[in-house]
Simulated scan of single mutants.
Amino acid sequence: MVSVCLSGMKKITCHIAIGAALLTSACMAQAADNYWQTIQQKGVLRCGAAVAAPYVMRDPKSGEYSGYFAELCRDFGQNVLKVKVQFVDASWDTLVAGLQSDKWDMAMALNQTPERALAIGFSAPAQDYQLSLLVNKANPKLSGAGNKIADYDKEGVTFAVMSGTAQDKAISGVVKKAKIMRLPGNDETRLALMARRADVLVDASDTNHLFAVANPDWAKEVLPSPALTKQGVSFALPRAVSEADMNVLNIYLTQRRATGDIDALVNKASLQANAGKAGAQ
C-alpha cells in the first residue's frame, strides 16, 4: 500500500491525508494544553450533572440546579473563568462517557478511583467520601447487629442503593448473602427504607447522617468497620488536560476548602435536601 502513495496524484493525496491527520492531532493537543482558554473563547463552561443530594440537586419544577458541586461549578465558571455556566443533564452511568465524547467540559462529584483515573483526570478533592449504612432501629431482622458488614449480610435482608454509583460498586463487592435493590435515585432508596421494602440503605455518610438526624425516632446510622470505602470526591476532566490547567482548578478547590467555604456549602445543600426542597430526576 505504501507504493501507491509514491506515484503521481496518489502521492499528493497521501501527503494531504497525513497532513490532515497531523493537523487534527496538533489541534487536539493545543486544546488540551489550553483547556480553560478554549472554554473562555467559547464563552460557556458545560458541567455534566447527575443528581445525588447534597452534591448535585435539581428542582423538578424550575429545572434549576443546586447542591454544593453545582455551586462550585457555577462559581468557578462565572468568577474564575468569567464565562456562562451550563448544566447538562446526565446520569451516573454516563458521566465518564459524556466527558470523553465532549458532551460536557467537567463532570461533577465523581469519586476518585484508580479505574476511572485510567480514563479521565481528577481535580483535587472538594470533600472526602465515606459510606455508611442507615437502618430502622425497630427492624427485628437486624436485632443485635453491630458495625460489621457480616452483621447485615444475611439471607432475607435487602440493601437499597442508587444504581451506578460508587456506593453501588462498594456494596456489591462485599455482600454475598443479602439481596441488593438498585434504584435510580436518593429519593427512591430512602422511600424503600421507610416503607420497609429495604432493610439497609447504603449511601454517603454525610447524607445518611443528616437523614438520621431528621428522623431520630426510627433511623440509625452505622459506620462500617473496616470502612467500605474512603475516597476523594472531585471534578473530572478529560485525561489529556495539562497539569497547568488542572492546577487552576486545584488551587481554587484547595483554597475554598481550607477556608471552610466548601463545608458551608455542604451544610447548606444538606439542609435543603432534608427540607424536601431538592428534587431528584
Rank of each mutant, 00 (worst) to 15 (best):
K11Q: 13
I12R: 14
H15L: 08
I16A: 02
I16E: 04
A17R: 13
A17E: 14
G19V: 12
A20L: 14
A21C: 00
A21F: 07
L22K: 04
L23W: 11
T24K: 03
C27H: 04
C27Y: 05
A29R: 09
Q30E: 05
Q30A: 08
D33K: 11
Y35Q: 03
T38L: 08
Q40G: 05
K42A: 12
G43D: 03
V44G: 11
L45E: 12
C47E: 10
A49E: 13
V51L: 11
V51W: 11
A53M: 04
P54S: 06
V56Y: 00
R58K: 15
P60T: 10
P60G: 08
G63R: 02
G63N: 03
G63V: 05
E64G: 04
S66I: 11
S66C: 12
G67C: 08
F69N: 05
A70N: 11
A70E: 07
A70I: 07
L72F: 03
C73M: 02
C73S: 05
R74N: 09
R74M: 04
D75V: 04
D75E: 11
F76D: 01
G77M: 01
V80W: 01
K82S: 08
K84R: 00
K84T: 01
V85A: 10
V85L: 08
Q86P: 00
Q86M: 10
F87A: 00
V88A: 03
